[in-house]
Amino acid sequence: MADVTNHVDKNGANPVAAPHERPVYFRGGGFRTEPRRFVGLAVFAILLIIWEVGSRTGVISELVLPAPSQAFAAFMELVNSGNLQKHVGASLQRLTIGFSAGSLLGLVVGTAIGLSSYARAGLSPLVSAIFPIPKIALLPLFIIWFGIGEGSKVATILFGCFFPTVIATYGGIDSVDRTLIRMGQSFGLSRWEIVRKIVLPAALPAILSGMRISASIAIILLVAAEMIGAEYGIGAYVLLAGNLMSTDQLIAGVAILSMLGLIVSWLITRAEKAFLGWRN
């Protein structure tokens, strides 16, 4: 505005002169994330290259961090010895059983807390009290309760998955649009029908994102679970590598765990696409 005024002032003798023009500059945009392919991959590759070069030139001492090539060699050793399948197989079995049982139980308890005033009053403080307990601290007790076989390993993962699922489920149920429930009631749907056909599908987005978290927790707890008398398992492999200070094997094992995490995350994304397609 000041500009315009100046313009007129300066040209006071000639008020009909063409007013100063300029285009409105663009100030929108930004803050919108768009998919950028290969950027993630490139960052990963560049880090690996820097790491490898650092190790080769001795800038990064072998004691501090083994080279990626050494970790890869350790991984290939694992593949060639045939132990990879044994380790992955044992871990996958524990993960699958622990995660499914924990999620299922969590779903049931979470639904109960979400729908029943008594369950909410009785159980939700209990959940808040037990959730933050580090499951690793309970390992000696788990040994006594569930034995040193598969029981205590599955139980560790189960406990880890149970609580986030409970919280996600009842959080999801709490945020279900009440008019949908009232609609169900107004058409005379039974309680069970309302839960099954309205409440749970509506809470599914929250439940699935809870599962994304609990699946990661399951992988984190794998190492803890396999502290107890595990002969095979990626967690056991990582622990042994750590105890023996075989850092190359340690990195290889950790890489397997993170691959596992990527696969699980991909599976859940697939599940979200399949079940939550209606959101888009």
Binding site: D177, T179, L180, M183, S186, K197, L204, W278
Partner: peptide
């Protein structure tokens, strides 16, 4: 009932 905000199940 017919509701103001339709109350349709989006899925």
């Amino acid at each position: 009932y017919v509701f103001q905000d339709f109350a349709l199940l989006p899925w």
